[in-house]
Amino acid sequence: MQYKVLVVDDSTFFRRRVSDFLNQDPGLTVVGEAKNGQEAIEMAAKLQPDVITMDVEMPVMDGISAVKRIMASTPTPILMFSSLTKDGAQATLDALDAGALDFLPKKFEDIAKERQEAISLLQQRVKALARRRAFSRPSLLRTTPSPRPSLRDTRAPEVKPAVSVDATRPPKASGKRYSALAIGASTGGPVALQTILTKLPANFPYPIFLVQHMPGTFTTAFAGRMNNLCQIKVKEAENGDLIEPGCAYLAPGGKQMLVDGTSRSCRIRIVDDSGLENITYKPSVDLSFASLGRIYGGDLLAVVLTGMGADGREGCRSLKQRGATIWAQDEKTCVVYGMPQAVTAAGLSSASLALGDVASHILAEMPA
């Protein structure tokens, strides 16, 4: 199957560059190019692309405004290109809140060290979003509205039967004792995390550990935004942070978040993973989950949300061996059913939950 892509950018050079890279993949074809947001809206309606790549800053109409209009009229998966600056991070989060599903740095050297690797990653991300469009065209991510306003594995493993939770029945607690909550996510994760965390009360009595694949400037901005939206406290984790109940610690981009100490008294340890082998992501769900398992053992609830690849599977395997409870987001509400699918296919998840049901199940399982 060949997926259709619309490329939107005010730079003729960048449009041609992105188009050339995408057209190198036999599964992708660029069907149009737009130089501003207004053209993007018109061409999206006319060409019905499977994916749109979108710049933020453009004349006539900016990318964020275009995203809002497109999602209101002809919902289409949108990948944003942004700069790795503070302003770029804020604009990208605004675009995700408006309905964009993913983002990449506009400078390809910031995506990967090798040019071909960067091109391959771009192609993979576009195809992952295109498959989401093909799977569910009318409803992309916002199957459950956010309670507050704004905000390398390409082949999927064979899925073993998962326990799907009946959303018509109230959540039922297992009665198990917990000491902490951990959540891992990638593509589609920012909005998914917002959907969950804004529903947790201020008196939520457990610490929360968040691992979201993001660059460093983005995690700083995202933590600040979530802290403003949520009743619980949300902060970007810092080395030496003493773990407190009711606080969510977001792993900083470009680093790894570990924990040291005991379940009653532990601290955050932020490290550069230059000495670690077989670790692709910074931050890594696998690495953080494994570290949390050594501290909390089986007294941990871990949730794997939407995202490409299989990060989190091995961390969940380690947690499962210690008796921890693991849940995964279901396929229908994922932007990309990669990470949750990997966990489910490995037989590690005990429940498959729709995004809109995750928070209520957490509150039932971990009551305040």
Score class of each variant (00 low, 15 high):
261 G>M: 11
268 I>Y: 01
261 G>W: 07
317 R>P: 12
302 A>N: 06
339 M>V: 06
299 D>G: 10
264 R>I: 15
342 A>K: 02
315 G>Q: 07
317 R>N: 13
312 G>P: 09
264 R>M: 15
260 D>L: 13
305 L>T: 00
335 V>P: 08
298 G>V: 05
266 C>W: 02
325 T>W: 14
336 V>M: 04
338 G>M: 08
272 D>R: 06
333 T>E: 08
266 C>R: 01
314 E>P: 05
274 S>Y: 14
303 V>L: 08
298 G>I: 05
318 S>L: 14
261 G>C: 10
318 S>E: 15
334 C>W: 01
255 K>E: 06
263 S>V: 15
333 T>M: 07
341 Q>C: 09
329 Q>M: 04
345 A>I: 01
339 M>L: 10
297 G>E: 11
269 R>W: 02
344 T>Q: 11
275 G>E: 14
304 V>F: 05
272 D>V: 05
304 V>I: 12
342 A>W: 04
302 A>L: 07
293 G>A: 10
316 C>Q: 12
323 G>Y: 13
321 Q>F: 11
302 A>W: 01
317 R>T: 07
312 G>I: 01
288 S>P: 11
324 A>Q: 06
322 R>N: 11
269 R>K: 10
340 P>V: 00
327 W>Q: 05
313 R>W: 14
326 I>M: 08
284 S>D: 01
272 D>M: 10
287 L>Y: 00
289 F>I: 06
285 V>S: 06
291 S>D: 08
286 D>P: 10
286 D>Q: 07
312 G>W: 02
343 V>G: 04
282 K>W: 08
282 K>Q: 13
335 V>L: 07
329 Q>L: 02
331 E>H: 00
299 D>N: 15
345 A>S: 12
261 G>A: 11
310 A>C: 13
297 G>I: 15
269 R>V: 01
323 G>E: 12
315 G>K: 03
277 E>Y: 10
344 T>I: 09
318 S>A: 13
265 S>R: 14
330 D>M: 00
285 V>G: 02
270 I>S: 02
298 G>E: 11
346 A>R: 07
275 G>Q: 15
266 C>T: 01
336 V>F: 02
260 D>H: 12
296 Y>A: 12
328 A>H: 06
290 A>K: 09
258 L>V: 00
270 I>Q: 01
297 G>K: 12
294 R>G: 10
297 G>D: 11
319 L>A: 09
292 L>G: 04
275 G>R: 09
289 F>P: 10
299 D>F: 15
290 A>R: 11
278 N>S: 12
295 I>H: 03
296 Y>S: 12
